[in-house]
Structure formats: C-alpha cells, structure tokens
Design a protein around this nucleic acid. Structure first.
Lengths: 109, 109
DNA sequence: CCAACATTTGGTTATATTGCCAAATGAACA
DNA sequence: TGTTCATTTGGCAATATAACCAAATGTTGG
C-alpha cells in the first residue's frame, strides 16, 4: 500500500473516531439545527463541563465543528453538515444487527 | 435525556468506533467490491494475521460485516453496503480541514 | 482594578484499544 | 489417523481515551 493511501486512511479514521462517542455524537446532532453555546451542552447532560469542553476540542481538531467566542460565551457550529446524512446508514446497521439478535434468540428458545 | 435515547447514541457510537481504524476502514473499502477471504487481507497488509482476525471480529460484532466459513477459509461480506456512501462526506471534512491548515500557514508566513 | 462568569487546560486515575506471540480450533487430505 | 493449512483465541505489554477535580484564562460589569 502506498504511503499516501495509508495517510488518507488514518485521516478518515480520525474523523470517524471523533464522531464515535455518545456525547460527541449527541452534540453533533444538536448542532444540525444551528450553532450552540457550550453552556447549552453543559446544562443538558450530566457530565462535567470540562469533559464537554474536551469533547468539543476533539470535534474541532477533527475539522467537524468550528468555534467562535462572543463575549463570555463560545459558540460551536457544524462545519460539514453532511456528517448527519449517514446516520441513516448507521441506524440501518443497528436495525440489521437487532434483527440478527432476534433471530438468534428465536433459535435458542 | 431519555434512557432509550442514550442507548441509541451508544449503539451508533459503537458502529462508528468499529469503522474508526485505518486497517478496518481499509478492509471495509475492499469489501465494497464483494466478499473477501481473510487470507487476502493477511497477504496485503503488514500486520500480524491474528490482528487482522481481531479487527474483523470487531466489524462483525458491530454488525457491519458477516462471515462465512467454506472449507479451510473464512469469507467476509459487507452486510450494510451504504457504509461506504458517507466516505465522501468524511473526505469533505478532511479537505475542509486541509484548507484551514493552509490558510493558517499562509497567515503565519 | 476586582469579582463573577464561561470555558479551557493541567494533572491524575481508571478503563479501553491495539498489537504481538503462542497456543487452540477446525477443515482437508495424504 | 496424523499433518498441514487458515483462522481464532488467550494472554500480555504498550499506548490511547475518558472522566474528574482544581487551577488558569479571558471577558464583562461593578
């Protein structure tokens, strides 16, 4: 495999990894409706605000969101909105998986 | 947040996490063209065959691929082919990120 | 300037992931 | 039956991730 091909795979994996966390995914979904203040995330989830901040940093470093400080608050925006399009596909995977599990449990009983 | 909503986020994150590795991503891309024997992956990448096997297990447990043993060989198939559709979006993220980096380095120089 | 507020960063600990080697499994075939 | 081949699994060490608390930063308003 070429070195450039490897680098591209690593880059893609990094973006996917940034999305691959329940809290980050939730924030990305929230951002589909438009920009949000960090404080809005902090209020709505039972996790330390420093943890929220770190998750947002990971999303920003992956190039998925961008931040904008206005006054005391920081607002985050979805930079590449297509990120949400493939959630349907992810859900399809989950549904297919659920069907298999059911078939399995039917077989066992 | 409802408990069911949390469970769905965790499930989605699990699928994304399964995709979020260079080697696994590479194998998924290979599988777009149709099923492959484990041995084909082993031959084409410089990683231990046991590692390849473990990566395939992760993809299978996430519901992304399925396996079929025929004779001495095991063949893997992409179960939900749409997985590849969103690679364009991932690439868009990477390109946007690259543009930002370039703009930054222009600013610095 | 000082206090209050929103967010980020430093530091630490617990847990998860990755990769290797060695050993186990299971199928084919001499 | 015993050997060979393809793959999986057990066990371990190295590294990465995630979460928390505390402290630092930067901004507004008194």
């Amino acid at each position: 495999m070429k070195q450039s091909e490897k680098a591209l795979l690593r880059a893609k994996a990094k973006v996917l990894k940034a999305l691959a966390h329940p809290t980050r995914l939730w924030m990305v979904e929230k951002l589909t409706d438009g920009e949000r203040c960090v404080c809005e995330f902090v209020d709505r989830v039972d996790v330390d605000f420093s943890t929220i901040s770190r998750h947002l940093t990971i999303l920003r470093q992956a190039g998925i969101v961008s931040s904008d400080k206005r006054g005391k608050q920081v607002f985050y925006t979805l930079k590449v909105p297509c990120v949400n399009n493939f959630m349907h596909c992810i859900e399809a995977v989950i549904e297919s998986q659920a069907r298999d599990q059911q078939a399995l449990s039917r077989t066992l009983s």
